[in-house]
């Protein structure tokens, strides 16, 4: 079972043995092209502590415009923690400290004075479990534009709702029942509703935390197609436990292990010719 709450490293098992033999916590050097020119999101020396435990060690990683970056790695390796640094969702976890610099379009967001509300209007997030608000489909989409005062009139809002639903590929299915509760949709539809909700405020970046782990294969395929379409307009980072999914939807892949970024590279290269043994072990299914 996949746990959505970020977990501190140090859990026992095969993994711990492997790491202890190979490298002590946090001493792993990243291999591959972690840094880009003109990145959309750039992270430097990002470290995360939960209380006394360190969950992420000095992550240096860029996300390019209009690309899908897949974050893979065994449970508890820090993928989700890293993802939640980018829209500061880690702020909501008590005892969690994030250090280092995170820039979105050259604007530093990881300091106390940064405006979290406007940051989150630029960085949307889709969660592991579909979590539509217990409101109508319309209100689910309209919520973001409303609180950020993006529209001047109801017609404009109607338009945004329609556009967002169309871009999320949900319009045809729900056009005639916009006032029905969003929670009444099927799981896959709910997840696409959540994606529509996220893109309604027209963010720059969309973070997806295992968006398909609660869905059946058909709904998963639908979401994967959608991610590919959305790539034209948004920078997307996706955490996934499915190697196939990472291979299908992403252009770049980052492999995390025990809180360290082990290897980054083009998805083709990572899956065909990994440079680190840890990466190879993981994608070939030797552990994880």
């Amino acid at each position: 079972m996949i746990d959505s709450t970020p977990r501190a490293p140090g859990s026992k098992g095969v993994l711990a043995d492997t790491l202890e033999q190979d490298a002590p916590l946090g001493s792993v050097q990243t291999v591959g092209e972690a840094l880009l020119e003109n990145p959309s999101v750039s992270c430097r020396d990002v470290a995360v502590h939960y209380g006394d435990k360190q969950a992420l060690f000095d992550i240096n990683l860029d996300m390019g415009t209009n690309e899908v970056l897949a974050l893979i790695g065994p449970s508890g390796c820090g993928k989700t923690t890293f993802l939640r640094c980018i829209n500061r969702m880690n702020d909501t976890i008590q005892g969690c400290r994030v250090s280092g610099t995170i820039k979105i379009d050259d604007e530093e967001i990881n300091h106390a004075d940064a405006d979290v509300v406007s940051l989150r209007s630029r960085v949307g997030m889709v969660f592991q479990k579909p979590n539509p608000f217990p409101k109508s489909i319309y209100d689910n989409i309209a919520y973001g534009p409303r609180i950020h005062a993006l529209t001047a009139s109801n017609e404009e809002l109607d338009q945004i709702v329609e556009d967002s639903l169309k871009r999320a590929g949900l319009w045809k299915e729900v056009a005639d029942r916009l006032q029905a509760p969003g929670t009444g949709l099927s799981g896959g539809q709910q997840q696409r509703l959540c994606i529509a909700r996220a893109i309604a405020v027209n963010p720059d970046v969309i973070l997806m935390d295992e968006p398909c782990s609660a869905l059946d294969p058909i709904a998963t395929a639908r979401i994967e197609e959608l991610i590919d379409e959305l790539r034209e307009n948004f920078t997307i980072a996706i955490v996934t436990h499915s190697m196939q999914q990472a291979a299908r939807v992403s252009q770049r892949t980052a492999y995390f292990h025990m809180g360290s970024l082990v290897e980054v590279g083009s998805t083709d290269q990572i899956f065909t010719n990994p440079r680190q043994r840890l990466t190879e072990d993981y994608i070939t299914g030797r552990f994880g």
């Binding site: 969702m89 979590n131 217990p134 996220a198």
Partner: peptide
């Protein structure tokens, strides 16, 4: 009230107070 509702609202850029008044309190 499921935490996922709070996360969803916060991730949409709602302030903690908006999250409470728009989503948590009604539920």
């Amino acid at each position: 009230v499921p935490p996922s509702i709070r996360d969803g609202a916060l991730a949409m850029g709602a302030s903690p107070m908006q999250t409470v008044f728009h989503h948590v309190l009604p539920l």
